[in-house]
Design a protein around this nucleic acid. Sequence first.
DNA 1: GTCTATAAAGGGATAGAC
DNA 2: GTCTATCCCTTTATAGAC
Lengths: 203, 203
Amino acid sequence: MTKDSNTEQKIKEAAEQIFVKKGLTGARMQEIADLAGINKAMLHYYYRSKDKLFEAIFIELIGDFVPKIFGAMGSDLPIDKKVEHYVNEIISAMTTHPELPLFIFNELRNNPKEFINKMGINPGGMLEKIDAQLKEEAEAGNIRPIPVHEFMINMASMCVFPFLAKPMFQGMFKVDEATFYSIMEMRKKSIPEYIMNSIRVKN
Amino acid sequence: MTKDSNTEQKIKEAAEQIFVKKGLTGARMQEIADLAGINKAMLHYYYRSKDKLFEAIFIELIGDFVPKIFGAMGSDLPIDKKVEHYVNEIISAMTTHPELPLFIFNELRNNPKEFINKMGINPGGMLEKIDAQLKEEAEAGNIRPIPVHEFMINMASMCVFPFLAKPMFQGMFKVDEATFYSIMEMRKKSIPEYIMNSIRVKN
DNA sequence: GTCTATAAAGGGATAGAC
DNA sequence: GTCTATCCCTTTATAGAC
């Protein structure tokens, strides 16, 4: 864990910004160099090629992001608390990096196999744990039975999709940037309610 | 509405396929020509430039897609039937064009203004109509009050997001292509239930 | 390590024959 | 309308001085 040289750090920050915004094919090495305030040749000195640079940035972003997302589901909390925790974590993470989901899904499409290998999916048997919790609650008569994949995809959908559809959402409902983010902030409370109400058995 | 020449039709089909899969910057004119089984120069003969070709394809795709999606919400059906109708329409549309949402959201990001103008959003005061219906149902004590943007984004999220996250979903839950689509087929029934249960007041 | 200069490849666009 | 050949700008990548 050695401290990166100043130049390398500047390259990383610039490359992240450009790649996330424009994608691999849309980004220009010159653009990255300019933003980093260095020469184009330096990019090749530190990373041999554009592809290698992209790969490095991608790995780093995924390494930050994916554990945060899945980590929130791995705890021993009861299911409703887990949902609250997850929704909070993921909306917070995406509020600071709103372009990340589109970037990730693009790379996912271009390179599904490598991607799935790179990211540690289902750490610590998280999915099995949630599945068990859902079954318990259903048998206790608290919720209707629901497959774990349905439960997870509904939750992820409601948290992440609005960031992907942000410009369309803003166009349709005539909301500015600040309003969009305040709506997402409120959704930290409302999404867990939608989720639990959609499966809870009322007495 | 003149019948397109055979060549032009082949160009359109090839360009659609390549652009949808790789985006504007990722696509290569040579690639499109090869797939169409014609020469690269022909692309410039029919459409002056790569940008113009892309624009033409984009407009056509949007023209097919957006009205279908919003149309489903403009009827005079009661709200629960409307949801069923919408969910069916959109999942069916995306099952035949699974790459379309990512393509659209990419272009949205690159060109938000033109996009919003191009697509006829909120046709026929659809949003106001739905908003009124939600308010009526809430006043009648049938559902909890919910802002129309929350209602719409939740519904769209659960329908569209799984297609965006398809490779990740398949990786996490170990499902093949056929299984993925059969899950989405089943979601035509379950999503309307989640939606309505999440806001319905039980007696 | 950092720069300038330049090579080498890629890819959009056009000229001109048929 | 369709093709081949080619132009030429853009962009990645490297050589070599400092």
